[in-house]
Amino acid sequence: MSQRKTLLPGFGLSLGITVFTLSLLVLIPLLALVTKSAELSLGGMWDALADRRVLAAFRVSFSTAFAAAFANVFLGLIVAWVLVRYPLPFKRGFDALIDLPFALPTAVAGIVLTTLYAPNGWLGQFFTDWGIRVAFTPLGIIVALIFIGLPFVGRTVEPVLQELDRQQEEASTSLGASRWQTFYRVLLPPLVPAILTGFSLAFARGLGEYGSVIFIAGNMPMRSEIVPLLIVTKLEQYDYAGATVIALASLVVAFIMLLVVNGLQHWTRKRTGRD
């Protein structure tokens, strides 16, 4: 590192602590993941991944995480919109409550959602009447992931919504646009980058989520078994190499997804001229 002499003290010390901690906790462990995977030959890696159960787990994880993040775009947008724009009793309390999924340990979320959506649970019984099973099916996974990801879209959209220029809205109305046209053409475009950010955060979290899902999922191989659970299962069978390869693959895929979404976001920002 080429360090320029500067007035402020502590560069070496703070950088030292930062790099040391990151190396110890993040870099070396991730390196271990890569080297352990490399113990398998390419063919071995392929065999480990091309297994039907593994592929099914990836399919379940991706589809449920995507569905939940997609649902959260609408749920988060509605909640943020109402909390920012409409008068509401206990508004401050509700606003604080939005972060509950961040603060509530996932194991608690998992058992309580399972209880609520079980076939004879408070909410599950209504679904049972319609012949829908929520808990112990992929639908249950989506419910858990919606809960976990709920704050992401709301929290990223909220500040942007607050800072929107009211005059643009008024200008749009004065030019004869209907309320829906104003929303769709004037208000929504600047929110898109925030929505995409929230979506990608919720999606990434959904892919990796473990605690809240395993209780409600039912964990049936091929049907409702998620990737993180499969990793744990392999570990419990002392199949370290198999677990590692799956972990590495899911990590790589998650990074690619994040890169794509970041690129998309960058592109949207450029197009709408926002930073």
Binding site: P29, L30, A32, G208, Y210, P228
Partner: peptide, 10 residues
């Protein structure tokens, strides 16, 4: 962006 499970695994 890393699954907690992977955090334990490493």
């Amino acid at each position: 962006s890393v699954s907690p499970v992977i955090a334990g695994l490493v």
